[in-house]
C-alpha cells in the first residue's frame, strides 16, 4: 500500500487490500469443546484482549466466522458435527487446532477421541499445550495473520 503525502488517496493492489482486510478482522466462531475453551474465552478477557488484533468478535454462527478454533478433544460423536460446521463456514476460512488433544489426541489415546482433528479438517496452525496459555493462542493468531499475509491458503501446514 502506498500513500502519498500530497494526495488524499491510497493506491494498492486488490490482492494486498484483500489480505489486509482478512488479517485485520479474523472473526472466530464461538465453539467451545473442552478445557481449552476456557482458555479461549480468556483471550477476550481484559488481560489478553484480542480486540487489539481485531479478533475479539466471537460469532455464534459458522456462517459469519472466518476462523474455527478447535478448542479441546474431539470425540468420535462430535467429529461429523465439527466437519459440518466447517463446511458451513464461508471461504476463506482457517482452522487453529488448539491444544494437544485437538492436535494429536493428547493423553487420550483411546477409543473415544479422534487422534488429531487434522484427520477431518485442514488445520492451519497447531498450538501445543494442555491447555495452551492464552498467550500461546494469541501467538498462534499472529502466526495465522502472517500466513494469510504471505499468501493465504497457499501454504497451509495441514495434510488435509
Amino acid at each position: 500500500m502506498e500513500m502519498s503525502p500530497q494526495q488524499p488517496f491510497i493506491t494498492t493492489k486488490l490482492d494486498e487490500f484483500t489480505k489486509w482486510a482478512q488479517t485485520s478482522a479474523i472473526w472466530p466462531m464461538t465453539m467451545g469443546l473442552a478445557c481449552c475453551a476456557i482458555e479461549m474465552m480468556s483471550i477476550v478477557s481484559p488481560r489478553y484482549d484480542t480486540s487489539r488484533f481485531g479478533a475479539e468478535v466471537f460469532r455464534s454462527s459458522p456462517r459469519q466466522s472466518d476462523l474455527m478454533i478447535v478448542s479441546g478433544r474431539v470425540a468420535n460423536k462430535m467429529a461429523p458435527i465439527l466437519r459440518q460446521l466447517y463446511d458451513q463456514m464461508p471461504d476463506p476460512k482457517w482452522v487453529i487446532s488448539m491444544g494437544a488433544c485437538a492436535s494429536s489426541g493428547g493423553i487420550f489415546d483411546n477409543y473415544a477421541v479422534l487422534p488429531g482433528v487434522d484427520s477431518i479438517l485442514p488445520v492451519d496452525v497447531y498450538v501445543p499445550g494442555c491447555p495452551p496459555s492464552p498467550d500461546a493462542l494469541i501467538y498462534a493468531l499472529m502466526q495465522l495473520r502472517r500466513e494469510i499475509a504471505a499468501g493465504g491458503k497457499a501454504n497451509v501446514l495441514a495434510r488435509g
Binding site: L33, A34, R73, A75, N76, F108, N110, Y111, A112
Partner: peptide
C-alpha cells in the same frame, strides 16, 4: 449428551495409580 465423551474412565484403568491423577 456424549459429544465430549473422552473415555477418561477407561484411560484411568490403563495407567498406574499415580499417573491416573493426570487424566
Amino acid at each position: 449428551i456424549g459429544f465430549l465423551h473422552t473415555g477418561i474412565e477407561k484411560q484411568a484403568e490403563n495407567l498406574f495409580w499415580q499417573q491416573a491423577v493426570t487424566v
